[in-house]
Write a protein that binds this DNA or RNA. Structure first.
Length: 280
DNA sequence: CTACCATCCTGGTTGC
DNA sequence: TGCAACCAGGATGGTA
């Protein structure tokens, strides 16, 4: 669910609570999320110190002492719920509960269990099967128009579908793919290979801009999503097209009603929202 | 190689 | 009010 801005927001919320802290107690209440959890998962984490927390694409990476990394993905519905240990009894779908030596508690709650966690030797993190094929970080220096153009070259798939491919660019999901295409003025149906040169430059800039703005807003709070410190992100109020079927696009108010305004279509089984007038 | 589809699982919303 | 159908932020693996 959470896309790059939401995961970045979670990471920033977790850092002050977890960096430098020891996992005094780890409770595991299920055997598998999206994948089976490692053998002895909770026991192996118990007593370990978290040295730092990073994000790569939509993954959270907690560097532990003893040269291991705790790798987490929130899937569609995963949340990290933070408390001072006064959160009360375990709630439905609280699968993993971390308690630090200072008494803070982080609960991984995931109704749909599409999330994942794994424990990996740190020298092998970049070779992990879920990380090794990821494309460039869209907010990193390695991402720009020519890099995006090269990734899209020859690809005979709609540009919307290509943006959801984590090999093209890492961390963009359904919401921000729709938003970036809107700001770049590109139709979600346009063939990916046709996004070259100036169009690729424009799209790369739109991706960076929309992600940056979303992070500044604390991400988008969706139905079941709360950021790590319990505060609600508010970027959902700034969506130009996502989940706004039938509404006027911010730039062409005139088309509202009469079947005009923002349209919805289904691509690769996912909803796409766009303005047919501004996006070609 | 590439592209499309179903699938994992649960819950909230919509419509009859 | 009850219940069924449909929809949802992701990502993989199989098939064509």
């Amino acid at each position: 669910m959470p896309e790059l801005p939401e995961v970045e927001t979670v990471v920033r919320g977790l850092r002050p609570r977890l960096e430098g802290r020891v996992l005094a107690r780890v409770e595991q209440h299920c055997d598998a999320l999206r994948f089976p959890l490692p053998v002895d998962f909770a026991r192996r984490l118990q007593g370990r110190r978290i040295l730092s927390i990073k994000r790569r694409a939509k993954y959270i990476l907690a560097q532990l002492d003893g040269n291991e990394v705790l790798l987490c993905h929130l899937g569609m519905s995963g949340r990290m719920v933070v408390s001072n240990g006064d959160a009360g009894p375990r709630e439905k779908h609280d699968h993993i509960i971390f308690t630090t030596e200072t008494g803070d508690q982080i609960r991984f709650n995931d109704a749909r269990r599409f999330g994942m966690m794994d424990l990996v030797e740190d020298s092998r993190v970049s070779e992990h099967r879920l990380l090794r094929d990821l494309g460039p970080e869209p907010l990193g220096n390695e991402f720009n128009g020519p890099v995006l153009a090269a990734a899209l070259k020859g690809r005979r798939t709609p540009i919307k579908a290509a943006l959801l491919d984590q090999k093209v660019v890492a961390g963009v999901g359904n919401i921000y793919a729709c938003e970036a295409l809107y700001f770049a003025g590109l139709s979600p149906r346009r063939q990916a290979y046709s996004v070259q040169g100036g169009r690729a430059e424009c799209l790369a800039a739109a991706i960076r801009q929309v992600l940056t703005r979303a992070i500044a807003a604390g991400g988008s709070s969706l139905r079941n999503y709360v950021q790590a410190d319990g505060e609600l992100g508010y970027f959902q109020h700034e969506w130009a097209v996502y989940d706004r079927f039938g509404e006027a696009c911010p730039e062409c108010d005139c088309d509202r009603g009469r079947g005009g305004g923002i349209r919805r279509l289904v691509q690769s089984n996912r909803s796409t929202f766009y303005c047919p007038k501004r996006q070609r």
